[in-house]
Amino acid sequence: PEAADLRALARHLYEAYLKYFPLTKAKARAILSGKTGDNVPFVIHDMKSLMEGEQFINCKQIPVPEHHQQQHIKLLYAVELRFFQSCQSRSAEAVREVTEFAKSIPGFVDLDLNDQVTLLKYGVIEVLIIMMSPLMNKDGTLISYGQIFMTREFLKSLRKPFCQMMEPKFEFSVKFNTLELDDSDMALFLAVIILSGDRPGLLNVKPIEQLQETVLHSLELQLKLNHPDSLQLFAKLLQKMTDLRQIVTDHVHLIQLLKKTEIDMCLHPLLQEIMKDLY
């Protein structure tokens, strides 16, 4: 394709990205570096601040089962589960945003509908993990649309297996952030992830690979223009896709473990659909 077409594609995907994703990397980095004036995030660093911060997270109160009615047990028991439930609601909303973004990729909606479902099923958690990276630094992560900063130490202090959920994402994100992609690079990278022709069960791989190839060309050109001094950035970025698959596999296994061990946990129906028979 002509360079002008590839630039037009990059612009189109960047516009869709800005339209569907409310918290961009530019905004997140401004919040994290304290450049938003008085608008500083509420910091959650222990159980007390978590409970104070719940009003920001807009937690739905989940009923505590009979066998946990004793007051202090109830409090300790419910807090992690309640936080997990609010994470699920946000994740479901994020899946909707990613779906709208996917539909804006030229040619995506013309693919076989079953294949659109497969691409989203396998791609959406990878996309969400990439989108989480700009919200993170080595000390913690923004949540709740940037209204809250939750410390990494606090997440590590939660009871098992909740404490194991975020640490691999921090490790990935800290490394990923050193690539210094901006929002316009991210938009193309997300489209490349969605258009992976090797997802299990795809019916018609060829048109998906053709679409991905065009977006890959556009991404390669974008990185050359936007990061002229960053050698091998395109290759480094493509390597991240392998790491991502392992993180998603581990994440799904952890959720499956949670489902077995947390008798009162209910998985959001949309996330259940995505994770069922995934890996």
């Binding site: 609601s89 479901a92 909303e93 899946v95 909707r96 779906t99 709208e100 539909k103 909606v109 509908l113 079953n114 659109q116 479902v117 497969t118 989203l120 099923k121 069960g201 959001h268 129906p269 949309l270 659909e273 995505i274 069922k276």
Partner: peptide
């Protein structure tokens, strides 16, 4: 596949109007 993924299918088929999640 569509049957097993009703919500995803619905999100794909609907326009940008938010689905009740």
């Amino acid at each position: 596949l569509k049957e097993k993924h009703k919500i995803l299918h619905q999100l794909l088929q609907n326009s940008t109007s938010p689905v009740d999640l």
